[in-house]
Design a protein around this nucleic acid. Structure first.
Lengths: 136, 136
DNA sequence: GTAAACCTTGAAGTTCACTCTAAGTCAACA
DNA sequence: TGTTGACTTAGAGTGAACTTCAAGGTTTAC
């Protein structure tokens, strides 16, 4: 059993965020001490691991909530969850390929700017104050 | 010269978004017809290309706005812009590597769920209504 | 036993990137 | 000349994912 503070340290999520996730049905029904403090079980920690996994690959909290609702319904939703994960993986792969293409464009721009910069500094050097280390 | 409608078609951005970008200083000073309608020049289109390039690689509109302000200041900001782009590229590469790691985790989860599903369906098949194609 | 640190709740506030609304203007066509 | 329909503006609204606040209850260390 872990306090909210321990869970923060293990997951990197803030206490605020953990309470928010509970409210939003991503991880409902977390246990309480007699005093009313949250107590996370080993199973809760595993669920949180899955939540972070999905969140880190860009799934919306709403979709994660739906996935977790299915998980709570039991093994008869295994096929649905499996298919959902496979579709999600494909989405992420597509997104990464797109990102690579966009990044290629940024690389071209860098080449273009580097060339333009070299030209500009050559002009500055010949007509202006001169290079800082002429005899280097 | 392009009307806002033509720019929408060429960039995939909505008219609302184009006006918003103008207001937010990403692309200020777009020309007007005598009647007050926006007229985008060839140069504006190039700037928009750069904006989309940065946006598509996840740069915030605030940072894009800063970049565009530098661009308007002239060639003496070339070095700064070049360095900025290089740093951005590194950030994106790091983000993509992280994403790949997170995606690997999703893949493991899929394997795990696939196995669990096979087990579950085997159990269902032996104790329940039986497979749908017993003689296949 | 009391003070400081930490927890609880519900609700309001924040940031980002749009997106929509209202009220009015402009252009093209019958 | 009138009527569509696309354009203009300022400003309000939206949704996602938190984040902060206020007011109070619980633990723990001295």
């Amino acid at each position: 059993m872990y306090s909210i503070h321990e869970v923060c340290q293990r997951t990197g999520l803030s206490a605020h965020t953990l309470r928010y996730y509970e409210k939003e049905q991503l991880l409902p029904g977390v246990g309480r001490t007699p005093g009313g403090f949250r107590q996370y079980s080993e199973e809760d920690m595993e669920t949180l691991g899955m939540i972070c996994c999905l969140k880190n690959t860009g799934m919306s909290l709403q979709d994660i909530s739906r996935f977790m609702t299915l998980a709570r319904e039991g093994d008869h939703t295994l096929r649905e969850r499996c298919e959902l994960l496979i579709r999600h993986k494909e989405t992420v792969l597509t997104r990464m390929e797109e990102m690579q293409r966009h990044l290629d464009k940024v690389s071209w721009k860098i080449d273009f700017f580097t060339e333009k910069l070299a030209e500009y500094e050559r002009d500055q050097g010949s007509s202006g104050a001169g290079p800082e280390n002429p005899g280097d």
